[in-house]
Design a protein around this nucleic acid. Structure first.
Lengths: 234, 234
DNA sequence: CTTGATTTGTGCGTATGTATG
DNA sequence: GCATACATACGCACAAATCAA
């Protein structure tokens, strides 16, 4: 682990464990320089990361103040998979793979993914059950050339973990689009909709470190189970 | 304008105006150092900002590559007001102020805003009309002690502009929550719902530079007119 | 009102490491 | 091996905001 990353994650841990609580001032740059035997630039990089990710607010001439109340579920910005998120929140979650097939990119997909029409994809459809109700339908499309060996066993667990740890690919960033859509036939077939006629769709275009797109996913959420939060800065 | 900010905004302009297009490599750090007579740290800070905001992707040993296709409506992360956003997209937009009153914080508001119950607030309710339809209902609650002189004339324009330019306050960050809710009576009264029974609610807790909360806003969108996009990083 | 101490902001320079081609 | 390009880390100087003496 890098030095700045060490400082960063130590302070994150201090906030999560309530050693620093909301409105506390964290140690000044010079104090951190001493305690970590680091240069000012290194310390500043760590604190800048904390601010970007919504943990703290720096105020010129005063200090650096903690924003979040301790630990909490707060899903700040970042790519977090369904599996990772719900593990953190301690919910009873099950995934059921209802489809896994090799398909060719149709017109809509090839446009969205900027791929040649007919390019081979692996399509996975999963139903997410939270506390006894089917509330999310995930439809993934992976670029077959990049992601090999996707089985039902892998799909039942965390696909991201498989991709990063087994295939050794580095996931870097994702463009995310959130919108509402009328329910599709699939929604009605797989989800417990309780009469609701729309779903919230989170589209994800996920890219590797070198910029190659490797996945297009639609995550279709029942209206009353959707929740998204982040921190925006001017 | 700072030096790093100058470099940053020059490159943003180059991307928006398609002088750099998707997958182009921008000048290397050493080239930017020469052309701006800047140190490496300054150049790197500018490029880091570009990456954080989703304009580029840095790849170790190769260069820095442009992600976005030129200009476009892409609503990247950041606090952008309704007014600012639609001005960019060239839409025909009208705002109607349907309520403006001094109120006291009730239990729900005082909890959400972490204020004393009964604290004085300025409540503004506005209907947003886009291309002839009422599709957004904005309900703002400003802390009266911080935001004075809010009139109907100000509310009809950009309140943010008034706050920053007239009152001289610096808006810094905002916690944003997105979720769906069943329609309220107000939604039915003010919006053209076309039979839809839910709205998407964007809650904003906006803070000043010194960390003081000055606004709680609910922006209630008709399902089919809601759209949100950003870039998430690992 | 002024001064000084503290703290963050901006900018410079340098050295060394690591990934790519 | 070598050149190029980004990554990490160190150091220094001065500016600007805040606060207390």
């Amino acid at each position: 682990m890098n030095k700045y990353h060490q400082i960063y994650s130590d302070i994150v841990a201090d906030i999560d464990n309530q050693r620093f609580v909301q409105d506390d001032k964290i140690p000044s740059e010079s104090e951190l320089m001493l305690s970590y035997e680091a240069s000012r630039g290194t310390v500043r990089k760590a604190v800048d990361m904390l601010q970007e990710r919504g943990y703290v607010q720096k105020i010129h001439g005063k200090g650096v103040f903690v924003l979040k109340p301790g630990n909490i579920e707060f899903q700040l910005s970042g790519i977090v998979s369904f599996q990772e998120m719900n593990e953190r929140m301690g919910r009873k979650v099950e995934s059921q793979v209802v489809e896994l097939a090799e398909v060719a990119a149709d017109a809509a997909l090839s446009k969205a993914m900027r791929l040649a029409e007919g390019a081979p994809l692996v399509k996975i459809k999963r139903v997410r059950n939270i506390d006894g109700e089917n509330v999310i339908l995930d439809v993934n499309h992976f670029v077959a050339a990049l992601v090999s060996g996707l089985s039902r066993e892998v799909a039942a667990g965390s696909i991201y973990r498989y991709i990063e740890q087994q295939l050794g690919l580095t996931i870097s960033y994702s463009q995310r689009i959130i919108e509402a859509q009328p329910c599709s036939d699939d929604d009605r077939r797989y989800l417990d909709l309780n009469g609701m006629d729309h779903v919230i769709v989170v589209k994800n275009l996920t890219h590797l470190y070198d910029g190659r797109l490797f996945e297009y996913t639609e995550s279709r959420h029942r209206l009353d189970k959707f929740y998204f939060t982040d921190i925006a800065r001017r």
